[in-house]
Simulated assay, not measured.
Amino acid sequence: MSLPDSLARLHARAFAPTGRGWSAAEFAYLIDAPHCCLRHETYGFALSRVIAGEAELLTLATDPEHRRQGIAARLLAAVESAAMDMGADRQFLEVAADNPAARALYSAFGYAEIARRAGYYARPGGTPVDALVLSKELTP
């Protein structure tokens, strides 16, 4: 199985049933881009991009059967380090307001809310959920 296929499969598992998993084609496009950075392990991955000194965490996914084992924390630290190596001094991300585990992780890493996108995430058969835009200064 190709890396984009593996990422797409894991992403779909990680975001089911509340979100749409990204396709293998989407991952292939992103991981081939010169400004994107992928850090991955068997049960998780983080994907970011760095442009003009700013990094954006595009997605962070952990296999649901392997959560609460430090995988997401390792991947977030790795992608932050890579972003700094690529010249970023700040990282942004967005997280669903109804995702307390991810919000706790980002808070523990020093991210702070800077904006809110009302009703940004669609929920199958439910009310859309706000996206919280978080930011953190990256320091070596």
Score class of each variant (00 low, 15 high):
residue 41 E to C: 12
residue 41 E to F: 14
residue 41 E to W: 10
residue 42 T to S: 15
residue 42 T to Y: 07
residue 42 T to D: 14
residue 42 T to M: 14
residue 43 Y to R: 04
residue 43 Y to V: 05
residue 43 Y to S: 01
residue 44 G to N: 09
residue 44 G to Q: 07
residue 44 G to K: 09
residue 44 G to E: 06
residue 45 F to S: 05
residue 45 F to T: 06
residue 45 F to K: 06
residue 46 A to Q: 08
residue 46 A to I: 06
residue 46 A to V: 02
residue 47 L to D: 04
residue 47 L to E: 00
residue 47 L to F: 07
residue 48 S to G: 15
residue 48 S to A: 15
residue 49 R to D: 14
residue 49 R to L: 14
residue 50 V to N: 13
residue 50 V to G: 08
residue 50 V to L: 05
residue 50 V to Y: 11
residue 51 I to Y: 12
residue 51 I to Q: 10
residue 52 A to H: 07
residue 52 A to C: 13
residue 52 A to L: 15
residue 53 G to K: 01
residue 54 E to W: 04
residue 54 E to C: 12
residue 54 E to A: 11
residue 54 E to P: 06
residue 54 E to L: 04
residue 55 A to Q: 05
residue 55 A to M: 08
residue 55 A to I: 00
residue 55 A to Y: 03
residue 55 A to H: 05
residue 56 E to V: 02
residue 57 L to Q: 00
residue 57 L to E: 01
residue 57 L to S: 02
residue 58 L to T: 00
residue 58 L to W: 01
residue 58 L to H: 03
residue 58 L to R: 04
residue 59 T to C: 08
residue 59 T to Y: 05
residue 59 T to R: 00
residue 60 L to C: 13
residue 60 L to T: 02
residue 61 A to H: 01
residue 62 T to N: 01
residue 62 T to V: 15
residue 63 D to R: 09
residue 63 D to C: 00
residue 63 D to W: 03
residue 64 P to W: 05
residue 64 P to I: 07
residue 64 P to G: 08
residue 64 P to R: 10
residue 64 P to K: 07
residue 65 E to Q: 14
residue 66 H to E: 10
residue 66 H to N: 06
residue 66 H to I: 03
residue 66 H to S: 02
residue 66 H to G: 01
residue 67 R to D: 06
residue 67 R to C: 15
residue 67 R to T: 15
residue 67 R to L: 08
residue 67 R to P: 10
residue 68 R to K: 14
residue 68 R to Q: 15
residue 68 R to F: 04
residue 68 R to D: 14
residue 69 Q to T: 05
residue 69 Q to Y: 04
residue 69 Q to W: 02
residue 69 Q to C: 12
residue 69 Q to V: 01
residue 69 Q to A: 13
residue 70 G to S: 10
residue 71 I to W: 03
residue 71 I to S: 03
residue 71 I to H: 10
residue 72 A to S: 12
residue 72 A to W: 00
residue 72 A to V: 09
residue 72 A to D: 09
residue 73 A to C: 02
residue 73 A to Q: 13
residue 73 A to P: 00
residue 73 A to H: 08
residue 74 R to Q: 13
residue 75 L to K: 10
residue 76 L to V: 02
residue 76 L to Y: 01
residue 76 L to Q: 02
residue 76 L to P: 09
residue 77 A to W: 13
residue 79 V to K: 03
residue 80 E to A: 12
residue 80 E to G: 12
residue 80 E to K: 11
residue 80 E to L: 10
